[in-house]
Simulated assay, not measured.
Amino acid sequence: MPIKQLLALFTVFILSLSSNATESKNKVYEITFSVTATPDQEKEFKDKIVPWASIKNSEVDSKRLIDSTRKVISESEATVIIDYPVRKPVNFKITSKDGFTRGDLLRRIGQIYRQMYRDEEASSTIKTVPIDKRKGLINRNATDGKYGIWGHDIDDLDISSATISCSNGKCTIDLGIES
């Protein structure tokens, strides 16, 4: 085979490798979950923007969520990684044929957390100490259920951001949880 043909084939091969590498390259980006302030929050947040949303009240906060209808994930499947406040990280798969908007994610993440707290209470032999019975720091006691939740009641949890990493049609979502 003449050298020109070999070089041409080699060039096509290298370009195809480069193209495949670009297609499988990670897309990593961060989104935020800011909500418009309620009238009683306006004194604390002068710009009338709260830089987080409630986990427990995600359904309500999704109505005040800034850019709630903006699609933030085009893929139909994503894995939400919950690593706080649990003993070890837990992955939850979520699906949607049309991808996910910011509001979709807030509602789904809230649903996951609410179910986790219910499952924890049902599976734990150590029950959560009621707030009015806690001494000193009023953090939630650690329980030994399915997830090993510790430190914070669901009422204490807010989401401020999520880092989304997508590669080859699969996405993972790492949460920025505040307490």
Rank of each mutant, 00 (worst) to 15 (best):
F100W: 03
R107A: 04
A142K: 13
T125S: 13
L106K: 07
T36G: 08
E42D: 03
S123P: 03
Q115C: 00
K46V: 14
P85L: 10
A78H: 08
K133T: 01
D98N: 15
L65W: 07
E120V: 04
I73G: 06
K56G: 02
E121S: 13
E75P: 01
G99S: 04
S74K: 12
R64L: 11
K63E: 15
R108K: 15
T143A: 03
R140D: 06
K133D: 10
R114K: 14
K93G: 00
V90R: 06
P89S: 15
P51M: 10
D47E: 14
D119E: 15
R70T: 14
Y113R: 11
A53F: 02
T79I: 11
F45L: 08
A78K: 07
Q41R: 09
G136T: 01
A122I: 01
S68P: 03
T95V: 13
I82Q: 04
V129M: 10
G136L: 00
T128V: 15
V86F: 06
D98F: 06
Q41V: 05
R64M: 06
G99L: 05
G103R: 04
R134E: 04
Y84T: 13
T143M: 02
T38R: 13
D40V: 01
V80M: 06
P130E: 13
K93R: 14
K97H: 02
V129E: 12
I82V: 15
A53I: 06
I66G: 02
A142Y: 11
D104R: 08
V50C: 00
D104N: 14
N57L: 11
D119Q: 12
R64A: 10
Y113P: 06
T69A: 14
E42H: 02
I66V: 10
T143E: 10
I49N: 07
D98H: 08
E121T: 13
A53Q: 05
Y113N: 05
D83M: 11
I82E: 04
F100M: 04
I55V: 15
F45V: 08
A53L: 02
R102E: 14
P39N: 12
R118W: 09
T69H: 13
Q115W: 00
D98P: 01
A122F: 01
R114V: 08
K93S: 14
A122C: 00
I94M: 07
D119C: 00
K97S: 11
R107K: 14
K135A: 05
L106R: 07
T95G: 03
K71E: 06
S76N: 15
E121N: 09
R114I: 06
K93T: 15
G110W: 10
I81G: 01
I73Y: 10
K93V: 15
D144E: 05
T69Y: 11
V86G: 07
I109H: 05
K135S: 08
P130I: 09
D47S: 13
E75M: 07
L106C: 05
R114G: 01
D40M: 03
V72F: 11
P39D: 12
G110Q: 08
P39M: 01
